[in-house]
Amino acid sequence: MKPQLQLRRYARAEDRKLKAYEKKYGKAILRVLNHQLDEAIRNLQSGGIFLDVSMNDVLSNLYKEVGVDIANSQYDALTSFKTKANEFFLNTWLDFMTNYILSSMAGRVTGINDTTRKKIQETIAIGFNLGLETEQIAQFLRERIGQFNVYRSIMIARTEIAEAANIAKDRSSEDWERETGENLYKVWIHRYARDPRHWHVDLDNNKAIPKPDKFIVTNPKTGNTVHMDRPHDPAGGAENSINCSCVVVYVSESYARRLNSAK
């Protein structure tokens, strides 16, 4: 099979899996956002406060489930001609994702919830400035924030699932290299988006680069150029991460040579 076709088949299969996760967790995140809105309305006189714990729980489950599954898929794709990932690796990846959640999740959840708070507080302020009564402000919040939550839940799910997938692939590729002693290459894969970042589409060029090398990512809209290890590398900043569903695929050196030499 031609290497480009093999890569695209793998990418399509992974895309179907990630879309299923996006649908599942998009619904779960929407429920949390709407619950936060209800809580804010109940606490309208206190400035629309709500708790952070529900979003933390949903995203923790997302990272554990998606992370272990995608790490396993990446490892198995690399070792299909040798051995499958065993229980040791599955437990190792779960431990890794759990530690990531403990060390990094708080900041991600805080960022998401702070955006929600800002939107709610802005809407409450507009309502008071318009001279609306409490019940009217509550209705105004449901109309203004409710629709916003639908779009935002999809965006959060897409961003966090891609983040979990790329982190998990990093770890499984490192484990594969330690087990085999072989060097890996990597390919940038752009997944479908309604409003794609065209500079990300350009990086999806069926060319593999050595794993230690950087992808050179230039945003023509801003002129900013950054060097990224993979999609969702923090070095890319928000303009390359928020609502991005791109993923990295790690491949063996022999496969990379075949891919790069193909016409």
Score class of each variant (00 low, 15 high):
Thr218Ala: 10
Thr222Lys: 04
Thr225Pro: 02
Ile216Met: 08
Ala168Cys: 05
Glu253Ser: 14
Ile242Ala: 10
Ile216Arg: 14
Ile242Trp: 13
Ser254Thr: 15
His190Ser: 12
Arg194Tyr: 03
Ser254Tyr: 03
Ala208Val: 08
Arg178Phe: 01
Asn219Gly: 06
Val187Gly: 02
Asp195Ile: 14
Thr222Asn: 06
Thr225His: 08
Tyr185Gly: 02
Glu239Ile: 14
Leu184Asn: 00
Phe215His: 07
Glu253Phe: 04
Trp199Lys: 13
Thr218Lys: 15
Thr180Arg: 01
Asp202His: 15
Lys169Met: 07
Asn243Gln: 04
Lys169Cys: 04
Thr180Ala: 02
Leu203Asn: 08
His200Phe: 07
Gly181Asp: 00
Ile216Ser: 13
Asp229Arg: 15
Arg178Leu: 06
Ala235Gln: 13
Ser173Trp: 05
Ser241His: 10
Asn219Pro: 01
Gly223Thr: 12
His200Trp: 07
Asn224Gly: 05
Lys207Ile: 15
Gly237Met: 07
Ile189Arg: 01
Pro212Tyr: 02
Asn243Gly: 03
His200Gln: 10
Pro220Met: 03
Trp176Leu: 02
Ala235Pro: 01
Ser172Val: 09
Arg191Ile: 02
Val248Ser: 04
His200Ile: 07
Ser241Trp: 00
Asn205Gln: 12
Val247Pro: 05
Asp175Gln: 12
Arg171Lys: 14
Ser172Phe: 00
Thr222Leu: 02
Val217Leu: 13
Arg178Met: 02
Val248Ala: 01
Arg194Thr: 15
Leu184Tyr: 00
Pro212Val: 11
Lys211Cys: 05
Glu239Ala: 15
Glu174Gln: 14
Ala168Asp: 06
His198Tyr: 11
Ser172Arg: 08
Pro234Gly: 01
Ala238Lys: 12
Trp199His: 15
Glu182Pro: 03
Ser254Arg: 13
Asn206Val: 03
Asp202Cys: 03
Ser173His: 11
Met228Val: 15
Pro220Gly: 05
Glu253Cys: 06
Gly223Pro: 08
Arg191Lys: 08
Pro231Trp: 03
Asn205Met: 02
Lys186Ala: 08
Pro196Phe: 00
Lys186His: 05
Gly223Lys: 06
Glu177Asp: 03
Val201Pro: 01
Ser241Gln: 11
Val201Arg: 14
Asp233Ala: 03
Ile209Pro: 11
Val251Arg: 12
Arg197Lys: 06
Pro196Met: 00
Asp204Ser: 12
Asp175Asn: 13
Trp188Gly: 05
Gly223Glu: 03
Gly181Val: 03
Ser254Val: 15
Arg230Asp: 05
Val247Trp: 01
Arg194Val: 13
Lys211Val: 09
Lys186Gln: 04
Asp204Val: 07
His200Cys: 06
Asn206Gln: 15
Pro196Lys: 02
Trp199Cys: 07
Arg191Asp: 01
Ile189Ala: 02
Ile242Val: 13
Asn243Arg: 11
Asn183Met: 01
His227Arg: 14
His198Gly: 10
His232Asn: 01
Thr225Val: 10
Asp233Trp: 08
Arg197Glu: 05
Gly236Val: 04
Ser241Tyr: 04
Val249Thr: 13
Val217His: 08
Asn240Phe: 08
Glu179Val: 10
Glu239Ser: 11
Lys221Arg: 14
Pro210Gly: 09
Ile242Arg: 11
Cys246Phe: 00
Thr218Trp: 09
Val187Asp: 00
Glu179Trp: 06
Asp202Thr: 14
Val249Pro: 03
Ala235Asn: 13
Cys244His: 09
Ala235Asp: 14
Asp233Lys: 11
